[in-house]
Design a protein around this nucleic acid. Structure first.
Lengths: 336, 336
DNA sequence: TTGAAAGCGCTAACAC
DNA sequence: GTGTTAGCGCTTTCAA
């Protein structure tokens, strides 16, 4: 059996309580005994056991990270990067992350995350759009909770979000500045809050430059926001026969889908139509021509979320409110 | 305070020991009391606390996953996918994964993974090339351990590996079958065991088809195995002025780097030179022309590793030995 | 087949 | 400042 707090106490000729106080940096310990205890700890190679600490202190040192299954298994590593951002930050703060996925149709009787039932986390990060049934359920555990890339009114939860409106605004302003006046918006499904905000940014930018929005240039009634939807949306747009010189897509997947159709129809990019996406996914830099897009720092999103939730757990602050992570326009060849 | 085993015991009019036996599916419990206890558990909504169980049973239900920092922060999500494969599998088996990174120059006094010191894992997965100093250190904890995508002689560790030799063999055989006789190998740094095996597969395939290896077609003395090395290697190859009609690269990054140089020098792909890579990274499908490559199932690597290590931890088996995960040739346009 | 009781290794009142 | 001690919520002999 490995060395325990008792061994240290005995050898240092103090009580286990004193050793505990030293370990936890309690101020009410004289410098002399502190040093002596630390020396013994060093000599014995002592390390407190996580399970014993957790049981006694009711602090696990773990953060639960919940993702829906579809977000987790998506080939584009958007949420994976957010997770890695949290993971990185957790390491620095001596926390571990316990990851779990839940189905879209979360039912607490079947899918309750084990780490919640087992009281194995001090705080929660919920990434991406999660069902409100999950929110209702997790709230009952009264754990510090932060949403990432999602927000719902009525739940009073902290959230770390992409600054979609400004990102879109800048992207469209850039197109305007390059001389474009007839800029289409390829939006997919407006149910996605992010897409909705990006459309807002689009309208805002046009308004700011005194350009009226031509609603026949706005495609926002597609089933989803993937590559296929980008293709479908672009077909629809071209079939409308209204002229445009640029497209701002709600995300890179749709932008790349749109580019495929443009190429198929013999429209030259960027000469005849400039294309701009959003997210700066892995694919953006690799397609031909490389896609101009709005960079989203996914790792930072995850890191900020972890920081926020840990500070809540350690009671260093009461609320994080909404935190907007800025975006950055990445200019590549698809916009000329 | 939430409901504990005592509450269940009291309400079901049994001892806590009995409740514990029921929870752990001990056979020596009568069907009657088992049912009664389970019913009470249900009624009370009881769930055993992880920390208490761990402290008493000395089983954490966690698996430690160790990665070097450079592998973790690599932009290409190779090891990330392996990790996700393990994570997925862990969920199914009611384990959690604790992830940590260590620097290349691991020193146990500074970088010892916290989950080892705190006795917070039952088993270990080490992914990618790790320093032997780490192996020496982790072995002292006597935990079931499995390596992924790496192996060293002399350590008697289980390992889950890519079948590099066969993958390369098939890729080169495919080129031969397409009529190529002068096939170059772009290998980067032979220190990488995978690259070395891929070169073996290359030689094997040529031998099997009665083609002598022209050593002036083999480039394998580059500093590393990245995009830049692919560029440098291809420049070197072209400068040698020896004719070739195909290139088999040690991985996709180098293949893509090589393609860039070929295009720069006006060599048409695949008409003048066919290119084949290895790994099937995200980029492979997205470059122009899309890259023919050897697909590696990273998720499966991670999943198999987790399965292996959990079975070792649960003493369901003694050793996993070396497990080779098969590859699959993915034919795209770069090979004609 | 079940119960009593002794831990598992630590923290946190409270006392001195 | 430091020690005493009673838990934290389970598992696991050992008896009965």
């Amino acid at each position: 059996m490995a060395v325990t707090i008792k061994d240290v106490a005995k050898k240092a000729e103090v009580s286990t309580a004193t050793v505990s106080l030293v370990i936890n940096n309690h101020p009410a310990i004289s410098e002399a005994t502190r040093r002596r205890v630390l020396k013994t700890i060093e000599e014995l190679g002592y390390h407190p056991r996580a399970s014993a600490r957790t049981l006694a202190s009711r602090k696990t040192g773990n953060v639960g990270f919940i993702l829906t299954e579809d977000h987790f298994s998506r080939s584009e590593p958007f949420y994976t990067k957010i997770f890695l951002g949290s993971e990185f930050e957790a390491r620095d703060r001596n926390f571990y992350i316990l990851l779990t996925t839940i189905p879209r149709d979360f039912d607490e009787r079947q899918h309750a995350p084990r780490f919640l039932l087992e009281r194995n986390v001090d705080a929660l990060i919920l990434a991406g759009k999660v069902p409100t049934s999950l929110l209702d359920y997790t709230q009952r555990f009264r754990l510090p909770t932060v949403l990432v890339d999602y927000w719902v009114p009525g739940y009073d939860l902290s959230a770390v979000l992409i600054d979609n409106i400004n990102g879109a605004r800048e992207a469209v302003a850039y197109l305007v500045q390059k001389g474009h006046r007839r800029i289409a918006f390829l939006g997919g499904d407006l149910q996605h809050p992010s897409i909705k905000e990006r459309l807002q940014g689009y309208r805002l930018a046009l308004a700011e430059h005194g350009i009226d929005v031509d609603e026949s240039l706005v495609v926002a009634d597609l089933p989803d926001t993937g590559f296929d939807d980008g293709e479908a949306g672009m077909r629809q747009l071209l079939d409308r026969q209204v002229p445009f010189t640029a497209v701002f897509a709600g995300n890179d997947a749709m932008a790349i889908g749109a580019m495929r159709i443009l190429r198929e129809r013999g429209v030259r990019i960027p000469d005849e139509v400039a294309v701009v996406g959003f997210d700066d996914t892995e694919a953006a830099a690799l397609v031909t021509p490389p896609l101009t897009t709005v960079h989203v720092d996914k790792v930072e999103l995850g890191a900020v979320a972890l920081r926020c939730v840990v500070e809540l757990a350690e009671a260093k602050r009461k609320r994080c409110h909404k935190i907007l992570i800025p975006t950055r326009l990445v200019i590549r060849e698809s916009s000329g």
